[in-house]
Amino acid sequence: MSALVGIVLGSDSDLPLMKDAVQTLEKFGIPYELNISSAHRAPDKTAAYAKSAASRGLKVIIAAAGLAAHLPGVLAAHTVLPVIGVPVKSGALNGVDALYAIAQMPPGVPVASVAVNGAKNAAILAAQMIALTDASLQQQLYRFKEHLAAEVEEKDARLKEFGVDGYLNAK
């Protein structure tokens, strides 16, 4: 099956963070492609990638970027596909600058944003977008959410059983 999600890294230094997105997409069985490009150092490559994304079968693009974080916006400017930006924790502002850059797009060029270093949530959001037309994936996501709720119930039961100190010491 061809890739449904394109993951674009502004730099190879983003790879350890974006491994969470890769593993999450794999968990849901969503095919993806992984690329390194740069809005500043390889603008033509970045634009070409975005322009060809829909015709290659992609449904969503996830873009990781730190500092000025132009990569998600540049990709969004060249495609009609949804783009999810992952602000990377870096620089003097620890990713807050990247978060603002991704969130503050001009009218007509939206980019969804997740939390700083929120690669896993970017992949889950991409899965939810694809699940709009994929009932099987939608069921996987329902089971995933049920599992999250069950984990909370288990933690609450342990807290009630062991109290604060016992709970913390057991961790």
Rank of each mutant, 00 (worst) to 15 (best):
L81G: 09
V80I: 14
A69Y: 05
V5T: 07
I84A: 09
D156T: 12
L148K: 13
Y49Q: 11
V114W: 01
G163W: 11
A54W: 01
I124D: 03
G6W: 06
A103T: 13
V109R: 00
L137E: 09
I130S: 02
A115N: 14
L67M: 11
L34S: 01
D20P: 09
D44Q: 13
P16R: 06
P72I: 00
V96I: 15
G29A: 05
V116W: 10
L4N: 10
S90G: 10
Q140I: 06
G29I: 05
L168Y: 15
V80P: 02
P87N: 04
G85N: 06
M18D: 09
Y32H: 07
Y142T: 14
E161R: 14
S13K: 05
H147F: 11
F162H: 15
M1I: 11
D44A: 13
K19D: 12
V8T: 01
A63E: 00
A122F: 01
A150E: 14
A127C: 05
G66H: 03
A119W: 07
K155D: 13
N35S: 12
I124V: 13
A122M: 01
K27H: 15
V5A: 11
L132D: 07
A65C: 02
E153D: 12
K120Q: 10
D14P: 02
A68M: 03
K171Q: 15
I61Q: 03
A101L: 10
A150H: 13
M105V: 00
V74G: 02
A170V: 09
V60D: 12
S90H: 07
R41L: 06
K19G: 03
G163V: 10
V80S: 14
L75T: 00
M129L: 13
A170W: 14
A150Y: 11
N169I: 11
V8R: 00
A39E: 01
A126F: 01
V74E: 03
L15C: 07
L141M: 05
A126H: 02
L15D: 10
I84E: 09
L25K: 11
I124Q: 04
V116A: 06
V8Q: 00
A157M: 13
P87V: 00
T79Q: 04
S11V: 04
L141A: 03
P31E: 08
V116G: 06
G166L: 08
A21W: 05
R41Q: 04
G57E: 01
Y32A: 05
A3Y: 03
Q140C: 07
V96D: 07
A150P: 08
A39S: 02
K89A: 13
L67V: 09
T133E: 15
D156R: 15
R158P: 09
L93I: 08
V5Y: 04
L81Y: 10
S13Y: 05
P106S: 03
S90K: 09
V109E: 00
I130R: 01
A115Y: 11
A64Q: 04
V96Y: 12
Q140F: 08
V114S: 07
Q104E: 12
